[in-house]
Amino acid sequence: METMSLKIFYSLTSIALFGIGMYALFAYAHLLRKILAVNIMFTGISLFLVATAQRSSDSNLDPIPLALVITGIVVLVSATAFAIMMVCKLCEKTGMTQLPDEDR
């Protein structure tokens, strides 16, 4: 029973994190903030996956979601590093840390 409510708690938190990330992505113009926002979104998904690892009330954990989380982190780290590198390049070239408006 306790694990069940814990699971729901984790799931709701993960959805909240995902939402916060999504909001921040659209709300802030600074690119580093946008990259952080994407990271928060993925953290939310990771938490959700971790919450699903406990399938039943006994202590047997499902290993697959944990493997997925680790793989997801690897992908996210490389994407983040790459994005930060590009932001540095953009800053070097134009001195800006945010994207210019759509219509040029």
Partner: peptide, 15 residues
């Protein structure tokens, strides 16, 4: 700029 926009959009899609 276009690449950053593409990457961010794509990451949201991936999420």
């Amino acid at each position: 700029t276009a690449a950053i926009r593409y990457l961010l959009t794509s990451l949201v899609g991936a999420a």
